[in-house]
């Protein structure tokens, strides 16, 4: 009976689409209401195999999160470097703290679905919800720390 009731309610409520945002590491500690607000500001984009997502030196406005598929990132400064990004990884956060322009080129290497959010929307969201912002910045700092250790380990 309980299962039937849940199914019946879900017919009216619909699945909570926004909960899947929690799969992205930088949003993993946000409350469901934070995710609900964030989801309203997100845009879904689909790219086909070999399609350019952005090029180096383009203005940076959108931060992408990989929902499905894989993306090749090419960094052109300090020697050519390539990296493959997969599910739940993001593009643009590093550049967001660096400047106004992209420092790399991103190309889809198979069919890709991305969640996109405007940099200004994200910053406005953080400004309006400082506690939530702290959680996001904490997650970003952790990622940066592991990136630094990874680079230091390579050397």
């Amino acid at each position: 009976m309980k299962t039937f009731w849940r199914w019946f309610v879900s017919l009216f409520k619909g699945p909570k689409e926004y909960m899947r945002l929690r799969d992205y590491p930088i949003f993993s500690k946000l409350s469901s209401y934070d995710l609900y607000l964030l989801a309203a500001r997100m845009h879904e984009r689909r790219f086909v195999d070999s399609e350019k997502i952005f090029e180096s030196q383009y203005p940076l406005e959108v931060i992408y999160f990989v929902r499905t598929g894989e993306i090749k990132i090419e960094r052109l400064y300090g020697g050519k470097e390539e990296k493959i990004l997969g599910q739940n990884e993001h593009l643009g956060i590093l550049d967001m703290f660096h400047g106004e322009y992209r420092t790399s080129t991103a190309t889809a290497i198979n069919d890709v679905t991305l969640d996109a959010i405007s940099k200004s929307d994200l910053l406005d969201f953080i400004a309006a919800r400082p506690r939530c912002g702290l959680k996001i910045y904490d997650a970003i700092c952790r990622e940066f720390a592991s990136l630094i250790f990874e680079i230091a380990g390579k050397k």
Binding site: H43, R45, F47, E51, F54, Y58, P59, E61, V62, A116
Partner: peptide, 8 residues
């Protein structure tokens, strides 16, 4: 997709 970021 080409104009998405510009439109944004």
């Amino acid at each position: 997709n080409r104009f998405f970021e510009l439109m944004m």
